[in-house]
Design a protein around this nucleic acid. Sequence first.
DNA 1: ATGACTAGCACGGCTAGA
Length: 277
Amino acid sequence: MRIASWNVNSVRTRLDQVLAWLEAERPEVLCLQETKVADELFPHASFQALGYATAISGQKAYNGVAILSRLPIEDVQVGFTPLLPQDPQALDLGEQKRVISAQIAGLRVLNLYVPNGSSLRSEKYAYKLEWLACLKRYLQAQEAIGEPLVMVGDFNIALEARDIYDPARLTGGIMASEPEREALLAALGERLEDGFRLFEPESGHWSWWDYRTAGWETGRGWRIDHIYLDAELRDHALGCTIDAPMRGNPQPSDHAPVIINLAWPPQDEGEDDDEEC
DNA sequence: ATGACTAGCACGGCTAGA
């Protein structure tokens, strides 16, 4: 099965592009970030017409996440609070709609829109670090449950020099500062690893290009959209790609889709695979 | 050093993104 992640920068503005991409690619699951729409205005019917069930957590104008799936969606959870019921910060952070998860094909699919942080001196940067600290607690609680985990989203962090077009200039700034990198690494722990880096060690692969600097036209990008796998799912990973050409569309999102291909559900490895003659 | 461009809200010029 294939699971994709795409920050669409408004699901309504991008609706035709998202529908066309779904028809062309037919992933089992697509996780959206920055849907920028209140739940009552989410375009459920357009996705259902293509065979995708929807689970959403949105708000007016900002943020918003959604899971679209051709496989049945079960046990949808919104925000951090379902796994951190006694955590007051988890409740406060839930005002911004950035977290949704669901059980699909026996997997826990967790879709995140990590705060950007704006600049290192901004209150939003402190919020980003608090949010990541809460994510760490959340993932510890999730690990205790024992479901296989795929964690996707817009992380708004480039973890390494090879994830930025000009690391010499940009390292240390927003999306590439040591505190936010450490906070994300602490949340990942020993458990979660970047699916893209299982297959591609080289630099030059980006998932976001700035509108303002004509980043796409000049090849200046960042790899800030990630798909993380636990050890069990790493054993089933077949490939991970970024559909960069989508950034070259007319009126594009500033992000491109990232797709992981998993050999899941696991096939029986026993001897009862005898075929009919 | 700063801004660029895009989207939402609402219809003028902000906020926010990254």
